[in-house]
Design a protein around this nucleic acid. Structure first.
Lengths: 188, 188
DNA sequence: TTTGTTAGTTTCGAGTCGAAACTATCGTCC
DNA sequence: GGACGATAGTTTCGACTCGAAACTAACAAA
């Protein structure tokens, strides 16, 4: 069956990406998972920077994430803060040190792009992978972690004026490009 | 840049596949990596069933793999044997117990195929992913771990008659569908 | 006020992982 | 044939992951 083969290819690609990440993480003296946490926190919006959201994103338990965050905090990569509205909630922010590290990493990552593929082929691959991801996430009821721009809850109130239909809060245009743990694709 | 976005999508897909694998592994009382090892050993050919090949496949060090294999052997999933020609080499075989477990797993995996994609779309996705994988592997000089059928070393000596150009040995048709650690795509 | 829920932390044991030191075997070169 | 170097694996160490379960604290509702 074709789905089987696709599954396998994604696995192999995943192995490659992972071993690449492992290499980079070691350079920074971090575990691969730490890098994933930092990458997520650097791209998520203000509703999604909690330990719980990180756990959902990684598909790990909250206990595990709690420990990883402790390590990251000790190392000066992440700072924890209290939520003004809810005393139970912890708000996570990456430090400027982590930001700089991620920037260097992003610059490097641009270098190891798959060669031998035209820009057009890359665009098609991107669309295909996105569809694949949506299908799988829907089938397995995972959180989708998309950006607001593609979310069913986003309200467009005018040119450059946005609002989240869930929280009723206004969103800056730049914020609609961030990842949200409440993200849902529109019903088709 | 488009490559960046593709990289990200592959990562997200990888996370999904991994958390799915974690679930299945836990059912069997195994670590996710153990499952990967068993899957590899069930599909590789007779040149590729060594600890070193497993390490290359996983992108891990031989020390790490050695420990994982010890765990798998203790649990009765894998058996080690000596190589008749080279006293340094260990040959790995999965037990019938492991084979049965993988079969049940494969049957299940068929169920969680991405829905909402036509057979044609799946075929295109497959080709796209394969090209992506080849590009990345070539760029980073990773071993490709393809099946003999797609290898530059495979010699076709007649209908249903094959030979490996590296080892000079004859290969049964079924063997040309197995994964090899010496695999290389033809020069383009 | 009690009861239940939610967000996080802590603890435990088995295992991962890389690095480095180590053993054993195989080729090669003189 | 013996020395040397390469190769295949194993072992050891320390920091960390991971899930499960017990736990704390804050919130919510009845």
């Amino acid at each position: 069956m074709a789905g089987e083969r696709v599954f396998e290819l994604v696995e192999r690609l995943g192995t490659l990406v992972r071993s690449e990440r492992r290499r980079v993480a070691r350079e920074l003296g971090l575990q691969p998972v730490h890098l994933q946490v930092l990458e997520y926190l650097s791209r998520c919006n203000r509703y999604s920077n909690t330990p719980q959201a990180v756990a959902a994103y990684l598909g790990a338990t909250k206990g595990t994430v709690s420990q990883s965050l402790a390590v990251l905090e000790r190392g000066g990569w992440v700072r924890k803060g209290a939520d003004p509205a809810d005393g139970r909630v912890v708000r996570l922010r990456i430090t400027s040190r982590a930001e700089r590290a991620l920037e260097r990493l992003g610059a490097k990552r641009g270098l190891n792009q798959p060669p031998g593929l035209s820009a057009e082929a890359l665009r098609r691959a991107e669309a295909m992978l996105a569809a694949l991801l949506r299908g799988w996430q829907a089938a397995n009821r995972y959180r989708t972690f998309g950006v607001c721009r593609t979310c069913r809850h986003l309200l467009r109130e005018g040119p450059g004026r946005f609002r989240c239909g869930l929280t009723r809060e206004a969103l800056a245009p730049a914020e609609t490009e961030q990842v949200c743990h409440e993200h849902e694709y529109p019903a088709r």
